[in-house]
Amino acid sequence: MKGEKMDSDSNRTFDISEEDIYEAMKEIEGYLDITPGDFRALYAIAHRHAITRLATSVKAGDVMTRDVVFVEKGTPLAEVADRMAREGVSGVPVIQDQKVVGVISEKDFVFAMGGEALRSFMAVVAHCLGNKGCAALPMRHQAAEHIMTQPALTVSMETPLSKVANIMAENNLNRVPVVDSEGKLLGIIARADIVQTSCTVIIPSEGMRPSSEGVA
C-alpha cells in the first residue's frame, strides 16, 4: 500500500518572521537602536551559541542512570536472559571485579543463536517455527563471557553528552556504561537519556527564557 503524501506545510522549518521581531521589540521598554534584520541575525547566532554551550556543559554524570542492572562475567546465560526480561532492559554491562569487561545485549543473544544465518530476531522465529528446534538450547551451559561484546566502549562522568551521543551513533550503540578511572561501573546512559536531555536543552522551560531586564 502506498503511503499518503505528507502536506508541505508539515515539513516547514520553524522560523521567526519580521513581524514576530517587531512585536518582540515593542514589548521591550526603552529605545532600541537596532533593525529587525540585525536583531534576527543576532538572535540566530546567540541561539546557536546557547545550544552549543548547553550541549557541551552537560556531562555524562549529569544524566546517567546510577541504579544499573548488570551481570557478572560468569553469570549463566539463562540467568542473564531472565534478569533482562524481568528488568525490562535490552542490554546490560558485564562486570568482573567491579570493572566493566563487556556488554551483553539482545543482539548478542540473537547472533549467538545462529551466527550470520540467524542474525535477526525474525530469522530466529522462522527457525523455531520451521520445526528445527530451539535455537537457544546450545547456550544453556554458557555464561555471559561467551557471547558478550568486548571490550566495552565506556565513558567517564566528565565526558560531554554531545561526545557520548557521537560515540553511540558511530558505533550503533543503544547504551554506554559510565566508569571511573579504574574502569569500575558508576552508571549507564541510554539513547532515551540523550533524547530527553537534548529536548530539554533545545526547548527551554519558562524559567530559561530570556528576560528583557536591563535592555535599553
Rank of each mutant, 00 (worst) to 15 (best):
K99P: 04
A190P: 01
K2A: 08
H47A: 10
V125N: 03
D193K: 02
S57H: 10
V176I: 08
A190I: 05
E72I: 03
L186P: 00
T149P: 00
Q96A: 10
E18V: 01
M168R: 02
A190D: 13
H146N: 13
M25Y: 04
H49W: 07
V195F: 10
K184H: 12
N172T: 09
A126P: 01
D15V: 12
P210Q: 13
K107S: 15
F39I: 14
R119V: 03
Q150F: 05
T200M: 09
T200F: 04
S120V: 09
I147L: 01
A46G: 12
Y43E: 13
S162D: 12
G207A: 08
A50M: 11
V63T: 06
P177N: 08
N172I: 03
I51H: 08
L42F: 07
D9V: 11
E29P: 00
M168L: 03
I16A: 07
D15Y: 05
Y22N: 14
G74N: 12
E29L: 04
S205G: 15
M157R: 06
P138V: 08
R40L: 13
E182C: 03
S211P: 02
V178T: 06
V179F: 03
R83D: 09
D180Q: 00
P210D: 15
A78K: 14
N11E: 10
L54R: 12
S211M: 01
E170N: 13
M113Q: 07
L137M: 11
D15P: 01
D82S: 03
S181C: 06
T65W: 00
A46Y: 10
A135S: 13
D38W: 02
E87F: 01
L32A: 03
T149Q: 02
P160S: 01
E79R: 05
E4V: 10
D67T: 13
V125Q: 04
S120N: 06
A81D: 10
D20S: 05
V100H: 00
I194N: 04
I45H: 13
S120E: 13
T52Y: 06
E213M: 03
M122G: 04
M208R: 15
V80Q: 04
S8H: 07
V68E: 15
D82R: 05
G3P: 00
I147G: 03
G114W: 02
P204I: 09
F14S: 12
A136G: 06
P138G: 06
V80T: 11
L185P: 01
I194A: 02
E182M: 06
D108V: 02
T149K: 01
R40C: 05
K107I: 05
